[in-house]
């Protein structure tokens, strides 16, 4: 479903991704871990098509199509969803209105008729339950004045609404309290249907107790330097990154 080959990307002429490879099959969950500044968010942004990043080499094939030339909205419409590490506030635009616009844009790109208000409300109610988002939150402006945890929960709510094929979660667990972590994880797990894939970026093994990954990768200095199964996360939790850094530097 997603195939990244030798991906290189710069920001402001500084090379951040330095030849990254990753293969994801339908239904798989891949966790990406790695020290601060290693390029995890950069990878997420590049996949989503953020314009500040210059892709200088490699390819990204999503569902058989090279997506590097596509606009961010086209990638989103094709089913790539990014849950932001730092969700953005849009004052004066209600979450509900924002989601209605988004859902209908995605539907339009698939040749589907837009949902009317009633259908939309029904869908929204269903998905609100999934991550236990309450009504006031959908009526408030997008992320404005939301607590850190509420913002993260809102990202997963939006993901549930848009039903993407690939969900990229950038540190969705940071800022969540213990209960919220479980709720959000349950929400994500409910979306695991054997076809939908996820990239879960996290610093903490704890999240992976809830969202159990098929693979764990370590991203360091713009490359994936180690891959394994969920046991790798446990090992990292215990030992930190030094041993991996040492392996790489040799």
């Amino acid at each position: 479903m997603l195939s990244i080959k030798n991906l290189k990307a710069n920001i402001e002429d500084k090379e951040i991704l330095k030849g990254l490879n990753l293969e994801i099959n339908p239904g798989e969950v891949h966790a990406i871990m790695g020290p601060n500044g290693s390029g995890k968010s950069t990878l997420a942004s590049v996949l989503a098509g953020r314009d500040e990043y210059d892709v200088t080499g490699g390819e990204v094939v999503f569902k058989g199509e090279d997506i590097l030339e596509l606009s961010p909205e086209d990638r989103a419409r094709k089913g790539i969803f990014l849950a932001f590490q730092y969700p953005i506030e849009i004052p004066g635009v209600s979450n509900a209105n924002f989601m209605k616009t988004a859902v209908n844009e995605v539907r339009k790109s698939k040749g589907l008729a837009p949902l009317d208000s009633k259908e939309f409300l029904k869908l929204m109610r269903e998905k609100m339950q999934l991550v236990q988002v309450d009504k006031t939150m959908t009526q408030r402006s997008v992320n404005e004045g939301f607590s850190g945890g509420e913002k993260k929960r809102n990202e997963i709510f939006q993901m549930a609404m848009l039903e993407p094929e690939l969900g990229i979660l950038d540190e969705t667990d940071s800022g969540l309290d213990i209960d919220a972590l479980r709720i959000v994880s349950d929400g994500v797990n409910a979306l695991r249907d054997g076809k939908r894939s996820f990239i879960v970026i996290t610093h903490y093994q704890r999240l992976l107790d809830y969202i159990v990954p098929d693979f764990v990768h370590v991203l360091y200095k713009g490359r994936i330097v180690k891959s394994g199964t969920k046991e790798l996360a446990l090992e990292l939790e215990e030992k930190g990154y030094d041993w991996i850094k040492e392996e790489v530097e040799i």
Partner: peptide, 16 residues
């Protein structure tokens, strides 16, 4: 640009 990109990422065109 952050706000626009956020909207784009949800499938909304820049104009919208």
């Amino acid at each position: 640009e952050d706000q626009i990109f956020y909207c784009n990422q949800r499938g909304i065109s820049t104009e919208d």
